[in-house]
Design a protein around this nucleic acid. Structure first.
Length: 419
DNA sequence: TCTGGGGTCCTAGGACCC
DNA sequence: TCTGGGGTCCTAGGACCC
């Protein structure tokens, strides 16, 4: 059996852990730059705030309904996630962390356990130790565990937030209940096509012909169909090193000057280099993009990206920053109002086996240098050491007007308890 | 009028997830 | 005025090999 454990309204729940006065009240969390809504408590959902709602359009609604608004506090969410995952790992040696707020557990050798009680215990433990409410779906396959989780979430009173699909009757009932557009792996495009064919539920989908599914939804869709039929098709996946790593940001204001954009690009390159070193990879290529605000019709639009193959693999801040700013020179055009830029590094080789090339190589002195920089940044705070091309005067800042304290990761932000 | 039969690798685009 | 930031996989088609 697989269990899918999912934290309820995760970011909103993290904020509430340290603000218990907000329990039962509407809470939303905004994306970077306080741009749009990325998490909502149940009360906020009930008030009709959609996922991705632009904050500026909903300001009045927030005020009118006394909705508590938070800027994204990823330091807090990442730390709370680690706590939840740590607890979950005690309940099964086989676990896949699927996202910041979800994990699959595989249950083996629990045939003589009462699975329902086991699920209740996990739920109780996580809530007690972290304050984060969770829902658990348990079923013979991963896709069905996803379905069960949805039921647990939708009917918390009935299920006590733990639902098990362990009979054919339950499987069919669940699939007939689940709308096709809510099936894990069926996105907008597929849903549209399926509804046009009068496939309205997950059950209808499992009744389709294999060949048709494969032809229209590829092998991915066919595997999903089998998994929903109760034939185990998806295995637990172990953490793999990433194949691409990106750092991209929307700017708080429009940038018109090359120097402004160059500073951001240099910082994105450094961020990618740091992430590369964390997984002991070097990149052989990257993609840089810049574009103007696509939502503004009154300003001329410009959007370009450039893929650069490197002469040698690297994960040095200095080299990557240099290549990135050189690439920027090639696509930057004066006169536009730039709103967003980003870098994706790709085509990785392991750090310890980068091939020396004939003509040009990564500067070997950068290896110990980067080690020292990483160490200093780890001990003395993020980014105490920067390149001269980065943000000396802090010319940029992110809009974060409603940021909560870093309760769990910064000593000065720790809560005070009055006894 | 008739024009072979295999492969591999790479890339762009499209779909999906959180 | 103000609209996020990451990832994965698959397929088709083109370029190239013999």
């Amino acid at each position: 059996m697989f269990a899918l454990v999912d934290c309820n309204n995760f970011y909103a729940s993290c904020e509430r852990v340290f603000r218990p006065d907000l329990i039962g009240k509407p809470v939303v969390v905004l994306s970077n730059n306080d741009g749009c809504v990325i998490a909502r408590s149940n009360e906020a959902k009930a008030l009709g705030i959609p996922m991705g709602a632009p904050a500026f359009e909903y300001e009045q609604l927030f005020d009118k309904n006394k909705i508590h608004v938070f800027s994204a506090n990823f330091a807090l969410y990442g730390d709370m996630s680690a706590r939840v995952m740590d607890i979950l790992s005690h309940y099964s040696p086989e676990m896949e962390i699927y996202s910041i707020d979800e994990a699959f557990l595989q249950f083996k050798g629990l045939e003589h356990y009462n699975i329902q009680e086991y699920g209740n215990e996990i739920r109780h433990k996580v809530t007690k130790c972290t304050g984060i409410p969770i829902s658990i779906g348990i079923a013979p396959t991963k896709a069905l565990a996803k379905v069960a989780n949805r039921i647990a979430k939708k009917f918390p009173d009935h299920t006590k937030s733990v639902y098990i699909i362990d009979t054919e009757e339950k499987r069919i009932k669940a699939l007939k209940w689940l709308k096709i557009e809510d099936v894990w792996g069926i996105g907008r495009q597929h849903a549209k096509r399926l509804i046009a064919k009068n496939i309205r539920t997950a059950y209808d989908f499992t009744m389709l012909d294999d060949d048709w599914v494969k032809q229209h939804l590829s092998i991915v869709g066919l595997r999903l169909k089998h998994d929903l039929q109760g034939i185990p098709t998806f295995d637990l996946e172990t953490a793999q090193p990433k194949k691409t790593i990106a750092t991209t940001r929307t700017f708080e204001t429009n940038y018109t000057e090359y120097e402004q954009v160059k500073e951001r690009v240099s910082t994105f390159a450094v961020s990618c280099a740091e992430k590369l070193r964390k997984q002991h990879s070097c990149c052989n290529a990257f993609m840089l993009f810049i574009h103007t605000n696509p939502h503004r019709d009154d300003l001329p639009r410009y959007s370009r990206n450039i893929v650069v193959k490197l002469p040698f693999p690297t994960n040095s801040n200095i080299e990557l920053s240099k290549f990135a700013t050189e690439a920027l020179e090639r696509i930057f055009i004066h006169g536009y109002h730039y709103k967003r830029a980003g870098i994706t590094v790709m085509d990785f080789t392991p750090e310890d086996q980068s091939q020396l090339t004939f003509f040009e190589n990564s500067d070997p002195r950068h290896i110990p240098l980067m080690q020292v920089i990483d160490k200093l940044n780890a001990v003395h705070g993020k980014h105490i050491i920067k390149l001269a091309s980065q943000d000396k005067k802090r010319i940029w800042k992110m809009k974060q007007e409603k940021l909560s304290p870093r309760y769990t990761t910064k000593l000065t932000d720790i809560i005070t308890i009055y006894v």
